[in-house]
Amino acid sequence: MTTTDPAASAATVPARPAPPSRRTPHVGSRGGARAESRTKVTLYVVGGTLATIVFLVPLLWSVLRSFQTNDAIVATTPTLAALRQFTTENFSALFTGDADIVRAVGNSLVVSVGTAVLTAVLATLAGYGFGRFSFRGGTVLFGLIVVTMMVPFQAIITPLYLQMNAMGLTDSRLGLVLFYSTVNLPFGVFVMRNAFESIPSEIEDSARVDGAGTLRSLVSVLRPLLVPGIATTALYAFLASWTEFLGALTFLTDDRLYTLPLSLVNLQAGAYGAVNFGYLVAGAVVAMVPCVILYVALQRFYVAGLASGAVKG
């Protein structure tokens, strides 16, 4: 009769794993995390509120002043009663008087929209070339385009004027569109090149397998994915040309072609050098309206377009 050693049989039985310990989280650490999170939220709210005040107060003050008379604006000691007096006289004088602000707004719209469209088209084509094709000297050429962003156009405005004058493009809205497109094109190429690089090339390869050509792939397949970049390029070009003053002053001499910034400057030349600040502030508010509307409408595309290409993988 064979006997077994209880100690040996116990050694052969696998040990049961110990149950995981259930430790109660420390109350102090949880309270500290909540306090830290509450502090971050408070700082975020306070910072956002201060930034909103800094940006909105000048705009609201301009709108408030545009509905007041010139005497109330230039008063050295403004009273509460004067601030409460509102009138539409400034806007009526702008649109019905001798300021001819309607023509100036039309000229600015033609120039700004033309610049935005031309810059977006050329930047998209150039960005497609730099983002999808590898050719000798491509990196150097793209670097030269980016470097031109660091050169202010005021430094080259004299040779540009001589060139455009030789081509007969001065005193022309078309010449102004070409000038603004040239100035804004480097930024547009930079944005669109990053936009193309953020899109996987397999999407375009699949379109080619289905029989789509280069132009068809660009228009039908890639275009919906490029909307943020295109909107960013067009919005930047529109805002830059809408508010630009020196280029319009240099290339335009016919007052019938004056853009809105030039017309607002002419408002300052009143009788005996007097300036009607009511008209001037009202004109500035008119100039702000398209910028605010476009930026609010395209804000999400603008942010996405600037961030395109920042993260790859």
Rank of each mutant, 00 (worst) to 15 (best):
G114R: 13
G114A: 13
A116W: 11
V117C: 06
L118D: 10
L118W: 02
T119C: 15
A120D: 01
A120N: 08
A120G: 03
V121I: 07
V121H: 11
V121G: 09
V121K: 03
L122K: 09
L122Q: 04
T124C: 04
T124H: 00
L125H: 05
L125P: 04
A126P: 06
A126H: 00
A126Q: 06
A126R: 06
A126W: 06
G127V: 06
G127E: 09
G127C: 02
G129P: 04
G129M: 11
F130K: 06
F130M: 07
F130H: 07
F130T: 08
G131R: 07
G131F: 12
G131V: 08
R132T: 04
R132P: 03
S134A: 15
S134M: 02
S134I: 13
F135H: 03
F135T: 02
F135V: 02
R136T: 12
G137A: 12
G137H: 09
G138T: 01
G138K: 15
T139L: 02
T139H: 10
T139N: 01
T139W: 02
V140D: 02
V140Q: 13
L141G: 02
F142I: 14
G143Q: 02
L144G: 15
I145W: 07
V146G: 05
V147P: 03
V147W: 10
T148Q: 08
T148G: 12
M149E: 09
M149T: 01
V151D: 12
V151C: 08
F153R: 05
Q154G: 10
Q154T: 15
Q154P: 05
Q154H: 13
Q154I: 10
I157C: 11
T158H: 07
P159Q: 05
P159S: 06
P159V: 02
L160A: 10
L160Q: 13
Y161Q: 14
Y161T: 12
L162R: 05
L162T: 04
L162C: 00
Q163C: 03
Q163P: 00
M164C: 14
M164R: 14
M164Y: 15
M164N: 14
N165G: 09
N165W: 03
A166N: 14
A166E: 14
M167S: 14
M167P: 10
G168L: 13
G168C: 01
G168W: 08
L169S: 00
L169K: 00
T170Q: 00
D171F: 04
S172L: 15
L174A: 15
L174E: 14
G175D: 11
L176A: 02
L176F: 04
L176C: 07
V177Q: 13
V177F: 05
V177G: 04
L178S: 15
L178W: 08
F179Q: 11
Y180V: 08
Y180S: 09
Y180L: 08
S181P: 11
S181I: 08
T182M: 07
V183Q: 04
V183Y: 11
V183M: 05
N184F: 10
N184I: 05
N184P: 05
N184S: 10
L185D: 01
L185K: 02
L185T: 01
P186Q: 02
P186E: 01
F187G: 14
G188I: 11
V189Q: 06
F190P: 05
V191P: 04
M192E: 15
R193Y: 01
R193T: 09
R193E: 06
R193W: 01
N194W: 03
N194G: 13
A195W: 02
F196S: 01
E197N: 11
S198V: 01
I199Q: 03
